[in-house]
Amino acid sequence: MTDSELHHISDLEQLSTVPERIRQLIDERAALGELKPNGQLPSERRLTDHLGVARMNVRKALWQLEAEGFIYRFHRSGWYLSPPRFFYDPSRDFSFTKVVVDQGHEAGAKVLSTGSMVANAAIAGLLGIEAGTKLTVIRRLRFIDDRPVFVEISHVIEGRCPKLVELASTDISLATVYEREYGILLRRRELYFHPTALSDPHARDLRLAHGTPGLFVRRITDG
């Protein structure tokens, strides 16, 4: 066996242990109270020096732990310890805000933009309305415990919900606004989702790098 082959095997063995070594390091610091959920991990450089392994192997290990949901990252900010898992079923007729609160977290929202548009044929077909119908469009950033988790883009028939833009600026569930202000109880009619790669402005709003894996969800509701 050549020296290059021995070096290659050593790299593979090293890589297979790095994720567990990082996980153990995080668990130890969490047990000591030095690292809490949503707390920032040491930098890649510090982890590399501490573990005595190649920086690329540390980076690949962090990617693996991210894929497992153990840690997460913000673009140009670093890596963080994930909080306890949050469970959300978009097929159920519960507002996101209610589900967050029921699981002991704080829900938040920030309006990114508002406007209006005329429904084209594609959107009209999805909503079951006439093409040319005026729609209110509201783009909001949703949070769990101050962490941005998804961008919500709502297309609402303008005539059914006058002054919705003013009401959407409040930090409450739109489902609550529909029910309280317009007497509309939302019921899911269609749900469609697929994996995607996040691009700007969505990636930037979520503080993630362009191309970060994400999930596109289209939820059509009646009321």
Score class of each variant (00 low, 15 high):
Ile9Cys: 11
Ser199Trp: 15
Ala122Trp: 05
Arg147Glu: 15
Lys134Phe: 09
His7Thr: 08
Ala121Gln: 10
Gly159Gln: 06
Gln64Arg: 09
Glu13Pro: 13
Pro195Asp: 12
Arg189His: 12
Asp102Tyr: 09
Leu81Thr: 00
Trp63Tyr: 10
Arg55Phe: 00
Val177Glu: 06
Gly69Thr: 05
Ile123Trp: 05
Thr176His: 14
Ile172Trp: 02
Gly214Asn: 09
Ser91Gln: 05
Tyr182Arg: 06
Asp102Phe: 11
His105Phe: 15
Arg92Asn: 01
Phe87Thr: 04
Ala67Cys: 08
Pro201Leu: 11
Trp79Asn: 07
Asp3Leu: 14
Met1Gln: 13
Arg180Leu: 13
Tyr80Trp: 11
Leu141Ile: 07
Leu185Cys: 14
Arg218Thr: 02
Phe74Gln: 14
Ser4Thr: 10
Gly223Pro: 13
Val58Ala: 04
Val100Ile: 05
Lys98Phe: 01
Lys60Trp: 01
Leu25Gln: 11
Glu130Arg: 15
Asp49Lys: 06
Ile220Asn: 04
Phe74Lys: 13
Ala61Gln: 04
Ser82Glu: 04
Ile123Met: 15
Gly104Gln: 05
Lys163Arg: 13
Ile26His: 01
Arg55Ser: 07
Arg21Ile: 02
Thr114Ile: 09
Glu106Trp: 07
Trp79Ile: 00
Asp146Ala: 07
Thr48Gln: 06
Leu65Ala: 03
Arg188Asn: 12
Glu44Gly: 08
Ser173Tyr: 05
Met1Lys: 13
Asp89Gly: 03
Ser95Gly: 05
Tyr182Pro: 10
Gly132Ser: 10
Leu15Gly: 02
Ala175Phe: 09
Ser173Asp: 08
Gly223Lys: 03
Leu135Pro: 12
Ala119Leu: 02
Asp49Gly: 00
Phe86Ser: 01
Asp89Lys: 08
Leu206Cys: 10
Ser113Glu: 10
Arg219Met: 01
Trp79Glu: 02
Arg188Cys: 08
Ala121Ser: 15
Ile138Asn: 04
Gly108His: 08
Val156Trp: 02
Pro83Ala: 04
Val137Trp: 00
Lys134Asn: 13
Tyr182Phe: 15
Leu186Gly: 14
Asp27Glu: 12
Leu62Glu: 13
Ala131Arg: 12
Tyr192Pro: 00
Ala107Thr: 09
Ala175Asn: 11
Arg187Leu: 05
Pro19Cys: 10
Arg85Met: 00
Ser91Asn: 06
Val58Arg: 03
Lys110Phe: 02
Pro90Trp: 07
Arg147Ser: 11
Leu32His: 04
Gly132Lys: 08
Gly223Glu: 02
Ala209Lys: 15
Glu13His: 15
Ala109Phe: 07
Arg73Pro: 03
Arg73Ile: 00
Glu66Ala: 13
His8Lys: 13
Asn38Val: 04
Ala131Lys: 11
Gly211Cys: 08
Ser43Tyr: 04
Leu65Phe: 03
Asn57Ala: 04
Pro84Asp: 07
Thr221Ser: 08
Gly104Leu: 02
Arg23His: 06
Asp49His: 06
Gly52Asn: 01
Leu164Met: 14
Ala31Cys: 03
Phe193Glu: 13
Phe74Arg: 14
Tyr192Thr: 07
Arg21Cys: 06
Val177Ala: 10
Val53Cys: 07
Gly159Met: 02
His155Phe: 13
Val149Lys: 11
Gly132Cys: 11
Ser173His: 10
